[in-house]
């Protein structure tokens, strides 16, 4: 779809080790301009390391990293003018108020839109007059979010930005990202919250142990997973077990429950139709299921994952 040169972020075979620990082990990531890209992975899988490489804070050991047409390590300052960043664990200077931090960061970025800033403060319900040491985790997070969202950066690197927010604030955040998408800005959103990713992201990359295991649109990824089917037929449902891609079949009288690889769904439905379908519910695969399959070592050993 996108060639490396016009991608907002293009990472190929990135490796980074810290002493004996391998944090990134050949990671690939492509983010097209204007897309909101979900970046999923369990704790310690290398999401934060990847973002810190993109920020030019860490020097890659091997692999190629391009961002907005530049080299994140060499062209850090020029690139930082065009991006903004929200870390997952926001630490601030304890003796300085939230309002001061937002202004300082905004000015370092080249100016701050006062109206937008005040709007965001109100939306996120943040008191800017409190010293940073008295903020809770969620409030520190809001300080960083307001500072980032008030800037006019074309690329946003968000590292689990909503980890400390309550559901109400989560909704505010999603609205803000939605607006950014309308404006054609690019967002790399690392997150654990799958509902958030499903609601916001165009494409998703899943990493595990420093390596990319899946990447694609949500639709494409769903294709690789299973759909749960519960069906009641006029004739007893027989012969389903012989179909490829059917798992965990449970039959009782005229009822059948099973999971089917989404790629084989069509063949299964064709086989069911002649039996006289009285009712059928199908549960689409959730991202969560996909997630668990890649992360839960035990589960993924049992069921073979398609792709990757």
């Amino acid at each position: 779809m996108t060639t490396p040169t016009d991608a907002a972020i293009s990472i190929t075979a990135l490796r980074k080790t810290f002493g004996a620990t391998t944090a990134l082990d050949g990671l690939d990531l492509r983010v097209a301009p204007g897309e909101v890209h979900g970046f999923l992975g369990p704790n310690g899988s290398g999401k934060t390391t990847t973002i810190r490489v993109l920020l030019g804070l860490l020097r890659p050991d091997a692999g190629e990293v391009r961002m907005l047409g530049g080299d994140p390590w060499r062209d850090a300052v020029a690139l930082h003018r065009r991006l903004t960043y929200v870390p997952g664990d926001v630490t601030l200077w304890p003796g300085i108020t939230g309002g001061e931090v937002i202004d300082l960061l905004g000015r370092m970025h080249g100016g701050i839109d006062r109206r937008r800033r005040d709007e965001l403060l109100e939306q996120f319900d943040l008191d800017p007059r409190k010293k940073a040491r008295t903020y809770s985790k969620g409030n520190r997070q809001k300080v960083a979010l307001v500072a980032a969202l008030a800037s006019d950066a074309e690329l946003l690197l968000l590292d689990e930005p909503t980890a400390g927010l309550d559901p109400l604030m989560e909704a505010v955040f999603q609205r803000c990202i939605h607006d950014l998408k309308q404006q054609g800005r690019t967002v790399l959103l690392s997150s654990h919250i799958l509902a958030e990713v499903e609601a916001l992201c165009d494409r998703v990359s899943i990493i595990r142990l420093g390596r990319t295991v899946e990447s694609g649109t949500l639709g494409e990824l769903r294709h690789l997973t299973r759909t749960s089917i519960a069906v009641e037929t006029a004739e007893p449902p027989q012969g389903i077990d012989a179909l490829p891609g059917v798992h965990d079949l449970f039959v009782e009288d005229h009822h059948a429950r099973f999971d089917v690889d989404t790629a084989e769904l069509d063949a299964v439905v064709r086989r069911l139709a002649p039996l006289g379908v009285r009712s059928m519910t199908s549960t689409p695969p959730t991202l969560e299921e996909l997630f668990l399959r890649h992360y839960g070592d035990e589960q993924s050993n049992g069921r073979k994952v398609v792709g990757s």
Partner: peptide, 23 residues
């Protein structure tokens, strides 16, 4: 109770130098 501080940064708090001296 802690006193509330400034809602906005003063004019000169605008770069890493000002931050270092302020801290």
């Amino acid at each position: 109770p802690p006193r509330p501080g400034r809602a906005t940064a003063s004019r000169w708090l605008r770069d890493p130098y000002a931050l270092a001296w302020r801290l």
